[in-house]
Design a binder for these strands. Structure first.
Lengths: 216, 216
DNA sequence: GAGACCCCCTATCATTCGATAGAGGAGTTC
DNA sequence: GAACTCCTCTATCGAATGATAGGGGGTCTC
């Protein structure tokens, strides 16, 4: 029996609302999820939600922040390492963090929902993250580590993979998080590297960085 | 000025409804899109939609069919070729077809929406497609062409990439469809191949298959 | 013990939704 | 030219939605 992912003390209602909202946004989408659905899962009445959050959209904004801010920190780590190593380390850390997170992030990124003016900060953070990803790919190409490709396309492929791979339906409780993270990172690395002999070297250096606590 | 992607004769109202619905499902999701929105884009009143389709869900079912049936045909082609070649050919053909399609497929696959009993045939078709993808990966591993990996994870990574890469916001009118398709296929192939020296060989054989008209 | 605060409840509301009913116009057929 | 078919329209409906208002109970502080 795997250890419980949550500490013994009970979660606050606010935290439980966020977890229920995230899970249902992932399955049904933002608009396909009603506040009555979220409240029912938490075990409170629908209007009680609005004691903790001003609007339904405020719940989404909070969930976006909890995903985007840590992701930006992760991708900005390890500045001194070369691009392939940095990208690999970022992917490993990001996948591991997302799999371990109590929040299902797959339902957060809907084009039209994110256009709401109240979510401009979250939209900017997301764009900043995408820019960092492109920059990493561009640096890798310039350094000769990555083969020539469109950095934006590479970014899209990575983003698509991250979201669809992380929380697949039926993720087993005994999932090897580290193994899963490495598999995704390997896939991306191999897809981009120009000299595939480098794979093992990059893996070794990146794993050394990824498992080191604190800032690189 | 690139040639118009649609023939000169005007589209039927039914076709225009499907295109408008697909585009809006992609941006806003199924539930985030109202029938009033769809009708407004088509240029008819909201109740007029129900002359052409019995329900809003029937529109979704039709769009799913138009995506899934051709995709199943594509992945079942080229049975005689080896797995890596077949996978590459499938990806190239699929990406090319999806980019060229007048229907934006990104908004069609919502877990909860697909659970509706009226969409069981579409759900089955989707599962069949995923099974074929896993089977291709499994065959590739057994043949020593692909490195050992979880076929379901590989399938998820491919699916995630396909959907997020195909219709990225701001796809230019002069997009090199063939180039885009090849880039995605290359990324996947490199990610999976055990002997990376094979890349050029597989590419050549697969492109020969992918560009050949009719069944392989 | 009174007051403040927090967090829940019920009742309620305006708005939006998907869908139905029936009328009318244009085109086609006999 | 009448009848039929197709496809649009307006009017309308029941149901569901996000959010507000106000009340009540429990806990804490002074």
């Amino acid at each position: 029996m795997p250890p419980s992912p949550v500490p013994d003390e009970p979660l606050s209602t606010r935290q439980r609302i966020l977890q229920a909202a995230a899970a249902q946004f992932a399955r049904r989408g933002f608009h396909g999820t009603s506040t009555r659905d979220i409240a029912a899962e938490v075990g409170i009445r629908q209007p009680s939600l609005f004691h903790h959050f001003t609007t339904k959209q405020a719940m989404l904004a909070e969930l976006l922040d909890r995903d985007l801010q840590p992701a930006l920190e992760r991708i900005r780590r390890h500045r001194g390492a070369n691009p392939a190593v940095r990208l690999y380390a970022y992917l490993v850390e990001d996948v591991a963090a997302l799999v371990a997170s109590p929040f299902d992030v797959r339902g957060l990124y809907n084009d039209a929902v994110l256009e709401d003016p109240s979510l401009i900060e979250q939209r900017r953070a997301r764009e900043a993250l995408h820019a960092e990803m492109r920059s990493l790919v561009t640096d890798g190409i310039a350094a000769g580590e990555f083969r020539a490709c469109d950095p934006e396309v590479a970014r899209q492929m990575m983003t698509g993979m991250l979201l669809d791979t992380i929380w697949a339906a039926g993720v087993p409780a005994d999932l090897d998080v580290g193994g899963r993270a490495k598999e995704v990172a390997d896939f991306v690395l191999r897809g981009l590297l120009s000299d595939r002999g480098h794979v093992a070297l990059v893996e070794r250096e990146a794993m050394a960085l990824a498992t080191r606590p604190g800032r690189g």
